[in-house]
Design a protein around this nucleic acid. Structure first.
Lengths: 221, 221
DNA sequence: AACTTCCTTACGGAATTCCGTAAACAAAAA
DNA sequence: TTTTTGTTTACGGAATTCCGTAAGGAAGTT
């Protein structure tokens, strides 16, 4: 089993919960932190000390408070850690269950497990730790289809940007001009109309308003 | 201090945290539940047994799972309890920090305290319990302006309904017809346009799409 | 080269939204 | 009763969105 683990969540209760779960798994050394920056610094220091952490379990959303933070979210932290310390295994433990987010974290940043907080959260977390120790990927049931399906929700960065601009109050004409200025293609009004039409069909939206509402509900923007 | 308290949160860790906080406050009898329906049933039974709970501490958002629930959210539960058992004191303990939500819960359903989950969550919760015991209202710092400000955001139920319909993909014409059918006034297309225009100005929105996006971000719909 | 195929752009008309002005109506005040 | 005030409704034109059709261009294929 892992020897040295760090857990990160801004809520004390959650940290305690993880602590007891890891205790039952006979993990000797567990460090709890409440800020992403602390997690980063401790992980970095441990590497310099030649006693690196083997596993990080972290939440995604952290409340802002008086302390200014370099990493504002768990995702920021994970991104940085993946680049700097690819050896460190990472388990995400979050209330969020958006497929898109899971896919991004696992595929882009190589998170080894994604556990949804919930009534069975601690049980699943414990299973996840065991799986990851055996180098197996672990996903909570609710998000398990995040990878296997090609998940027809083929919606790319361009689409996201487009809908975001729309939600920010720009007219399709304004978006067209903006895209022309920034060399984003396609940029013609006609293409933008066409793309939005495709998205409306894909998300079964009656009109642009409906589309924005749906996409916001899905957490895509 | 309170003798008999019930705490409700779908996450075990949170329930445990509340339990220890209440223990430090010398509360003798604390019942933890993980479903709103369970909270309701236990509260009801306790009243029938002539040994009612004095205080409920509850989260707002509960994950759905296989068990079908009558009350899907903490707000549903609070609404029902306020009507049926006005004697029961209620503390909300939630991650949400939307002013609007706080105001609604406190003013409409007479919640006695609103504590935001966060790094100081358990400390504040403990203070809240003490305040409520002394019949004082308690609000976390982040949401303390929820009441004092007359908060000119004068937006009524009609406005909410209107924007909701819009977000659901109905055209202004369809909304007009719907309102006519349901005897909701005003119902003319012209009036609906006018009202939406007022809301756009109020929320500094460029157009209807922008309005819906803003109102969704504020958590009003 | 000739030919698909896919993507971008253009265009036009119908529907809807946007926005100002004004009439119709009701309730309260003079 | 008349006046005032505020709300609802009506109307018209400009702007934008919606939607189908088609032209232009950049790939790769035969």
């Amino acid at each position: 089993m892992f020897k040295k683990v760090i857990v990160s969540d801004d809520l004390v209760s959650m940290n305690l919960g993880m602590l007891t779960a890891l205790e039952t798994l006979k993990v000797k050394e567990v460090t709890p932190v409440q800020y992403c920056d602390d997690a980063y610094l401790k992980i970095k220091k441990a590497v310099l000390d030649n006693a690196p952490y083997e596993l990080l379990i972290t939440d995604l959303s952290f409340k802002k408070d008086h302390r200014d933070q370099k990493f504002e979210s768990g995702e920021d932290l994970i991104k940085a850690l993946h680049e700097e310390f690819p050896e460190l295994k990472i388990i995400v433990y979050s209330i969020e269950d958006r497929i898109q987010k899971v896919r991004r974290l696992v595929k882009k940043f190589h998170a080894k497990a994604y556990v949804c907080k919930g009534r069975r959260g601690l049980i699943e977390l414990s299973e996840a730790v065991k799986s990851v120790y055996k180098n197996e990927l672990y996903l909570s049931d609710q998000v398990s289809q995040a990878l296997n399906k090609k998940s027809n929700l083929e919606i790319d960065d361009y689409d996201i940007l487009l809908v975001k601009k729309l939600a920010n109050g720009l007219s399709q004409d304004q978006i067209s001009q903006l895209f022309k200025e920034n060399d984003i293609s396609p940029s013609s009004l006609s293409s933008i109309e066409k793309r939005l039409n495709k998205l409306r069909i894909q998300f079964k939206a009656n009109n642009a308003i409906h589309l924005v509402a749906i996409v916001k509900d899905l957490g895509l923007i």
